[in-house]
């Protein structure tokens, strides 16, 4: 089982003419975890990943994988697997031949081709020309390319984009499994909600600069005040009880939205007033709110 090595960005900067796409970006991605690389469209995520993979030359700084630049890796596809865009295929080539070509180039055992096609669920379409593939199938083929060399490090640009709900559920579980196996997994997305169920760590950039990094839970703390959703078969009684306890709340379709109290405190108020509670949970939207607040700070988009 290949084990992951850390990815390290050190002062990475890229200018296209006078425009700085990425400015002095430094962060580290650890193995054994899924790291979400987040930011709005145009924030510089793809450029950053392309610099990591030696496709774009940084204006300054360096990006390394286990301390080695990508172009100096002895067997690149067996060290780092990456999927960057869903369109990097010759439309007249079959999926099997597409993977076969790069297996040859990277000296990977051709037996890996049917294995990775099976992993991503494309076995029955392996002999079809890629030109007839749907976006979701192209995403899967891109992922198969990334997995070809059974690498310890995976870099995936917007891997969830274009997948159907079943595919999204599958890839979330798959990414988790890769991280549990000890691999380094870095996935980019412009939507926190898309990846928040799969990532452990987040790195957020806006306008090419780092705005936040830390575990996913760090967003909750910095986020808006906690909200608790509570409901009762007898909602009027519950409203009266909350009013008597002078809690701040508003009525919503899904229940009563309480601000500034923990779920336990709300439950206690209901219990003390003898009101039956049918649901009681913390609202999840705090993450998205703080994400938007962070990327909004840079005034991007």
């Amino acid at each position: 089982m290949p084990t992951g090595v850390p990815i390290e960005f050190a002062g990475v900067t890229k200018r296209f003419g006078p425009v700085a796409a990425v400015s002095d970006l430094s962060f580290r991605v650890e193995p054994g975890r899924v790291t979400g690389f987040l930011g709005p469209n145009g924030a510089g995520k793809t450029t950053t990943l392309r610099m990591l993979l030696g496709l774009v030359t940084p204006t300054a700084g360096s990006a390394t994988i286990g301390g080695v630049r990508y172009r100096d890796l002895l067997s690149p596809l067996s060290s780092v697997g990456s999927a960057l865009e869903a369109a990097s295929f010759h439309p007249g080539r079959t999926a099997r031949d597409h993977l076969g070509v790069y297996a040859k180039a990277a000296r990977i055992d051709p037996k890996q081709v049917p294995i990775v096609l099976d992993t991503v669920g494309l076995t029955e379409h392996a002999a079809r020309r890629v030109g007839g593939y749907s976006l979701g199938m192209r995403q899967r083929l891109g992922l198969a390319f990334a997995l070809l060399g059974d690498p310890g490090v995976l870099v995936l640009d917007e891997p969830i984009n274009g997948l159907d709900p079943e595919g999204i559920k599958w890839i979330r579980g798959f990414l988790r499994q890769l991280a549990v196996e000890g691999r380094t997994v870095l996935i980019s997305s412009h939507l926190l909600s898309e990846v928040q169920q799969s990532v452990d760590e987040v790195v957020i950039i806006a306008r090419g600069t780092l705005v936040h990094r830390g575990p996913l839970s760090s967003l909750e703390i910095e986020g808006a005040a906690t909200k608790v959703i509570v409901d009762s078969p007898n909602r009027d009684q519950l409203v009266a009880a909350l009013g008597a306890a002078s809690a701040t709340f508003e009525e919503a379709r899904a229940g009563i939205l309480v601000t500034g109290l923990e779920p336990g405190q709300v439950g206690h108020i209901a219990f003390a007033a003898g009101v039956e509670v049918s649901s009681l949970h913390r609202q999840k939207s705090g993450l998205e709110d703080s994400f938007l607040a962070l990327v909004g700070e840079g005034g991007s988009l």
Partner: peptide, 14 residues
């Protein structure tokens, strides 16, 4: 045309 330089250079960075 088909953006194949990406997988090509990923497999052979030289």
């Amino acid at each position: 045309r088909h953006q194949m330089l990406t997988p090509t250079f990923l497999a052979t960075p030289k």
